[in-house]
Design a protein around this nucleic acid. Sequence first.
DNA 1: CTAAATTTGTGCTTTAAAACATTGTTGTCA
DNA 2: TGACAACAATGTTTTAAAGCACAAATTTAG
Lengths: 233, 233
Amino acid sequence: MAKRNTSELKPIEDVLTVWDVLTPDERQFVKNHFTTHYFKKNEIIHCEGELPTHMMVLAAGKVKVYKEGVGSRTQIIRMLKPGEHFGYRAIIASQTYNTNVAAFEPSTVYMLKADIFLSILRNNNAFCYRFLEEIAADLGASDARTVNLTQKHIRGRLAEALLLLRKNYGLEEDGATINIYLSREDLANLSNMTTSNAIRTLSNFVNEHIIAMDGRKLKIIDEERLIKISKMG
Amino acid sequence: MAKRNTSELKPIEDVLTVWDVLTPDERQFVKNHFTTHYFKKNEIIHCEGELPTHMMVLAAGKVKVYKEGVGSRTQIIRMLKPGEHFGYRAIIASQTYNTNVAAFEPSTVYMLKADIFLSILRNNNAFCYRFLEEIAADLGASDARTVNLTQKHIRGRLAEALLLLRKNYGLEEDGATINIYLSREDLANLSNMTTSNAIRTLSNFVNEHIIAMDGRKLKIIDEERLIKISKMG
DNA sequence: CTAAATTTGTGCTTTAAAACATTGTTGTCA
DNA sequence: TGACAACAATGTTTTAAAGCACAAATTTAG
């Protein structure tokens, strides 16, 4: 019997959200040339400084995009869910990767060689425009995040991170637990704070009945207050 | 005699860096439809939350792109020089503006209605790709800036801002003075710190013979040290 | 040309968050 | 199963930067 992973994996035409704007020829071309790659938990998919070789689509799993800053302190820039593209910014800007990407949990990535990706971008205007839309939204989010991370206080930043996680990965069947399990360290790297402070602030939120914790399981109890905390800084 | 401003103003075909990929028809169309707008020092060009109506190109002058954060503390996101586009991100992402733009000094802006801009984007692949390239570079810069602003200490952030200003606006004829005059407040908003701290840190740099100051005139004396300070945080 | 307002410059105080230290908890694998 | 490693929790100390207050200088306005 096939691996559970493989049998559950959606085919590229279901994962690639820009599939609909491809011509029949392009579809065939992509189908013939894309490759599938599996990554273990915490495995690195690509590193800052490397030359970009592929446009990538997350087919299954969860990955983090992060930068190593001063004293190799890491800052998580964004987190991806299946169907989201990555690795293409550097190709388009003719730069090396300026972020690292690593798997939060076992993940599958579909990859398309840079030259193939570029040739479609250059020939299919609707395809090009879709990526323009995507990156325009990302830039807006990035600028917003800059201000949030620099101006809000610890509680505000952590509250924001929790809301972001819920928005991005949703809830489990119980309708309350955030559908991703992060280490305290990752949570800290997402919220621009030290691990100790993430732990401390999380405990405070529990004491104030804003969230509930069970190990890495996080439940949002009082969403209104969390939103208020995130807004006030 | 015509205004000095007007007589020195470059025509749109010289300012618009994407002019070369336009077809003759498109060039004529743009020429017939673009409008010219003058802004006084500190005048606001567009505001956060407004619906975007035009793609804009800075024809002359200097402008700041900034966000109002917690307690209306402002953060300068980037600064533009002639030939740079703005206001188009929101159009493409179908969002309201997420930044404010205001003139640092008297500035001239060429504007092209959103629907015209979109119709060219959708019909001219090379044009679309140019904007994709531009925004891809901007996103890389934005993510880098996030980490710099969150992780570096005050001296590092100010050093970085000074280097950024020099890189962006260059030097005056004396080969040393940075070719833009900012208030201490703007400098603080660029470096994510309070005005007092910008002033204080600037004074320290003068005492250490890293820069020289004469009012708002800033000269970089010891570039190496400035780079080192900016890197170390 | 003075008066008011803004900008700049400094010292002092307070505070939020980092850094450090220690202990408990859970998980992993020889 | 016991030992080691990674992770989580919490208290204490230190420090970078904000906040505040005020004076001096410069710009703007009446």
